[in-house]
């Protein structure tokens, strides 16, 4: 149970830092290691996907952005989805039905990422932000109450995407993180090289597949402990009575 507690702490920290602007601190130079709208009135860090689109529109070679992404990727890969991202936390709260993942379909998030970047380049506009359910939740709704936004077409589009995503999350655990999140796609590229790692001791594994029923991402940790979809939440580790799975942080190479 140790991992679950640590993870709750991490997610609380993510929420706290995500909305720390409520203290009046304003925008910092940091990029958020998850999907978190920078237009949110209380955000203190920049959304990596929103920033990437803007940099493409500007025609800037994104050295700083790449550097920050590698920092996050190397540190934990998709661990940020499981331990930090506020929208991931919302996905967690609504994950009632743990459905086995369709591995081939889960690549759709890469298409979302590619479409986001290419769309920004072709149309010179932040198309993804106009559909993003995180922006619906963290920008559209707060600004509606603050009187800056009104109920108009873009607002309704935002509410539509948010509703679809919420229904998806209720029907399929971590629906957004599995199939659609472009930030998840980006971090998953680093999943197998990151320092935070899931380990499997095959000699201890009996193949009971308890870990599979626990996994919110619907992967089979006792086969695919280094799956690119693994958010390193550690539920499988907590569920394994034989201690075959473990989480570790190591800088050393694995092979």
């Amino acid at each position: 149970m140790k991992i679950a507690k640590g993870r709750r702490l991490g997610q609380s920290l993510g929420l706290l830092l995500g909305f720390f602007g409520a203290t009046g601190i304003g925008m910092t130079h940091l990029i958020f290691p998850g999907l978190h709208c920078y237009a949110c009135p209380w955000a203190i860090s920049i959304c990596p996907i929103g920033l990437a689109q803007n940099l493409i529109i500007f025609g800037t070679v994104p050295y700083y952005w790449i550097g920050m992404m590698v920092v996050y990727g190397l540190a934990a890969g998709r661990g940020f989805c499981g331990w930090f991202c506020p929208f991931g936390t919302l996905n967690d709260l609504l994950s009632f039905r743990k459905v086995k993942i369709r591995d081939a379909v889960s690549y759709s998030k890469f298409l979302v990422l590619a479409a986001t970047l290419i769309g920004a380049w072709l149309f010179a506009d932040t198309i993804f932000c106009k559909l993003c359910p995180v922006a619906s939740l963290e920008a559209s709704i707060p600004y509606l109450f603050m009187g800056v936004a009104k109920v108009n077409r873009p607002f309704l589009i935002h509410m539509g995407t948010l509703a679809v995503t919420l229904v998806g999350m209720v029907l399929i655990a971590r629906f957004w993180c599995r199939y659609l999140c472009p930030m998840g796609a980006l971090l998953s590229l680093f999943n197998r090289v990151s320092f935070l790692k899931l380990r499997l001791d095959k000699t201890r594994c009996s193949g009971c597949a308890v870990c599979t029923t626990e996994c919110p991402m619907g992967i089979e940790p006792h086969y695919q402990y280094d799956n690119h979809n693994c958010i390193k939440c550690g539920r499988c580790v907590d569920s394994c009575h034989l201690g075959a799975l473990s989480m570790e942080v190591s800088v050393k190479g694995s092979e």
Partner: peptide, 29 residues
């Protein structure tokens, strides 16, 4: 990335993108 990016003040550019809300950019209008 970090060293060269910061020397080009890209962190400030990022901050200024984040600190300004363009109403039509995130779908408020």
């Amino acid at each position: 990335g970090l060293g060269y990016g910061i020397s080009l003040k890209q962190d400030q550019q990022a901050q200024s993108i984040g600190a300004v809300l363009c109403t039509s950019c995130v779908g408020i209008e």
